[in-house]
Nucleic acid binder design. Structure first.
Lengths: 348, 348
DNA sequence: GTGAAAGCGCTAACAC
DNA sequence: GTGTTAGCGCTTTCAC
């Protein structure tokens, strides 16, 4: 319809394909700047002009290129989420905990108009993982899920880069802004509950390497010492279900009868443990008490239902995003340590 | 150290901060083009020049801006992964299935040098979800996880956009390239197993709306009809654990004794169902047989362990990425329908 | 093997 | 309220 004669005839054919703001501007008979303003929803555009431009954009399914826009505005509208995998390379991302957190993060970020770029990294193979991500120019900020064994590296980066928030454990006097549960307190709650349920010989099931887990273990140890019990026995396992099951079985063979209270580093491990315990003919909670950590959905559906220490993952995700956005806005922010909560079900 | 006198004195202070390729070029005493070539690993650079540039880049922690590079090269190195949420808005991303798939996708994409941009969308609120993502200019291709109730929209888009692969159900003659399990066959396997285990009055637990689930239901229906049994009774629930539990309880109140074989749309639902069944005092598998779908980790840890229909999620992720990359390379690709596998444990 | 120069598509001064 | 213009940081011909 709008076929005018102002255009060069060689343009006639290509005219319907709108590749950029300039094409659209030509169609609308305005300048690229105006199209940009109209599509960005700025006020400084005549209502009729805007309508016309919007109609044209819709008609041609045109959307401004985010890369170009990002380059020009020096912001991308993307937040990076990075999951460092420690020694226990595989599988961790399948862990229900990470995934639940990620789901909530996706929601929160979307709510604020940000996209989420996900990266799994293996720090052992790529010492530069964090700088690389930050320096890529693809993200406006980064959320690190779990400190793994990278506390120091994160500290280093935090010194020169403000747009970062970390899910993990809080250390006295640390530089990086962290959101997480008070793991040590959680460990105390767990041990106290095991003892209250009649246990006297405690064990900690899981990897004590990651700092979060080390804190949980330490918390349990606090209580054992205070109560005059033997030290909590660390039963080291990997985190992936396949290897963990075997390892748990091995531990029971060696220490089986010497343990009557198990604090598992995560619910996943606790659930596995429950299965192994049953296989050994041990009754829960009569012979052995067991308590998990996280309060994942699985905890409600083990048999018997799992007593556990709850972390509020949704609240954590909310806070991570909230703090990050504030930092993006230039605010100074404190770390947030959330209280864990004992959820008493039937295993302890 | 390297303080030379060739530079304008006004540059002396700012010299150490390297913001872009041009800064680095100045430091190295070469042109921006050469730096670009060196850092991109092209062959056409003198070895010594390259080393010098790389050393300088390392020293200053410089990395080329991906947005600028992407804009210029018209490719981003990012693959979009989008999860359309149907009516059952909340929670689905927390579902272990999606999350497992996502984990594998992240691995596969990383392996091929791509980043992953994750987006959850609610098609009901944003009819334009797919075009918007594709048109954003931020991604080189898109993987859609689950067709939800958006089969038609995906078909429409597939007509004009090649760089898309979808996880879901395959329909005769469809246009979009899909990877998924033969859901109907899976449904048949499930029903056959329930019947072989002694069930005669079958029910399907879950939402029959999503096309994948509808196919599973249809498969079960096929078998019921063939065997001359009453039609499979659909027990409709939401997918989120919280609501599902209640709904399941409600169904049992109404139909409790009239059902002796349950095919649950997912393992998650099956696990919930098991708990409810126990609460009702029904024995599994003596009174009621039950079978799930997916073979998620949870299936091994329910009590009794869950019989289920296995989908190979890792293989699926691998194929999704493989097919997408081929399409990116201009290849024509067929859909891939993978065979489900019955995993017999103790609930049927 | 390297430099110069022209953009990728967009936005934000700055004019008018 | 709108047009013009100068880049954002990079890659890639095209010369030499």
């Amino acid at each position: 319809m709008a076929g005018s004669d102002k255009n060069d005839s060689k343009d006639m054919i290509a005219r319907t394909v709108v590749r950029n703001i300039t094409d659209l501007a030509r169609l609308a008979g305005v300048s690229p700047g105006t199209v940009s303003r109209a599509l960005a929803g700025k006020t400084l555009v005549n209502a009729r002009t805007r309508e016309k431009i919007e109609a044209l954009a819709r008609e041609h399914g045109f959307r401004p290129n985010q890369m170009a826009s990002g380059l020009r505005r020096q912001k991308t509208g993307v937040i990076g989420v990075v999951i460092p995998l420690g020694h226990d390379t595989r599988q961790q991302i399948s862990d229900s905990f990470f995934m639940t957190l990620l789901g909530h993060l996706a929601d929160e970020l979307t709510l604020h108009g940000y996209d989420l770029m996900l990266r799994r990294v293996v720090p052992d193979e790529d010492a530069d993982w964090l700088d690389r991500f930050i320096g890529s120019g693809m993200i406006d900020g980064v959320i690190v899920i779990g400190q793994s064994d990278q506390f120091e590296r994160i500290e280093d980066v935090a010194e020169g880069y403000r747009a970062m928030v970390v899910w993990g454990n809080h250390q006295e006097g640390q530089r990086h802004c962290v959101v997480g549960t008070d793991n040590r307190l959680g460990g105390r709650l767990a041990a106290e509950r095991l003892i209250a349920a009649g246990a006297t010989r405690l064990a900690f099931l899981g990897d004590t390497g990651p700092i979060e887990f080390a804190a949980r273990f330490a918390g349990a140890q606090d209580v054992a010492a205070r109560m005059g019990l033997a030290p909590v026995l660390p039963l080291v396992t990997h985190l992936s279900p396949d290897r963990a099951s075997e390892e748990i079985a091995g531990h029971f063979e060696r220490h089986g009868r010497g343990i009557d209270g198990i604090f598992a580093a995560t619910d996943t491990l606790a659930a596995l443990c429950l299965t192994e315990l049953r296989a050994c003919g041990l009754r829960v909670p009569e012979d052995v008490r067991i308590i998990g950590f996280d309060d994942l959905p699985v905890a409600r559906h083990t048999v018997p239902p799992l007593t556990t220490v709850r972390q509020d993952i949704a609240a954590g995700a909310h806070s991570l995003v909230d703090l990050l956005l504030r930092r993006l806005a230039g605010e100074q922010t404190e770390s947030l340590v959330m209280p864990p909560e004992l959820v008493t079900r039937q295993t302890a």
